[in-house]
């Protein structure tokens, strides 16, 4: 059970693009609605167009934090893994997105942050993926790490 938290948002005082890129970003009602609309739409598209089926979701932990890792590397993994989650967990998803692609322009950054709840991985070439996960958990919330592009696979070899 979540405890009542009478404390300001962690990103209070951060505005504009800086907020979109902030690892401390916390969203409210607008973010919740836009994310659910987005994931609902993606889920529908994946089920109808790609005929994706989900097996074993009952083995997921009841509450975060936990890590989900795809054994494949593409942008589609984020969509597939996120939509496979039950609704109660989907709002805890923080996909890590390449900072130089998804947070370069304000419009794309607003989409990545607002609709997908993505966090920019601006130092991806400098840190191993596990560090990125640790950075997020240290904020007090969590959930997870996506091996997001082929760059990780090349780096990890």
């Amino acid at each position: 059970m979540d405890e009542w938290e009478y404390k300001p948002a962690q990103d209070l005082g951060v505005a504009g693009r800086e907020r979109l890129r902030s690892v401390k970003r916390e969203s409210g009602l607008i973010g919740l609605i836009s994310r659910n609309v987005w994931w609902l739409w993606v889920r529908g598209v994946l089920r109808m167009a790609e005929r994706i089926e989900v097996f074993g979701s009952e083995h997921l932990p009841a509450s975060p934090p936990f890590v989900m890792v795809a054994n494949h590397a593409s942008h589609l993994d984020v969509m597939v893994l996120a939509t496979a989650l039950p609704l109660r967990l989907r709002n805890c998803v923080f996909p890590l997105a390449a900072g130089d692609t998804f947070f370069e322009t304000p419009a794309v950054a607003a989409f990545a942050a607002g609709m997908m709840n993505a966090l920019p991985d601006v130092a991806e070439k400098l840190r191993p993926p596990c560090y990125r996960y640790v950075a997020r958990t240290s904020c007090g919330r969590t959930l997870r790490l996506y091996p997001f592009s082929r760059r990780y696979a090349q780096q990890d070899r």
């Binding site: 009478y6 948002a9 209070l12």
Partner: peptide, 8 residues
């Protein structure tokens, strides 16, 4: 809401 934590 963001300042008081009500947004949660």
């Amino acid at each position: 809401a963001r300042a008081t934590g009500m947004f949660r």
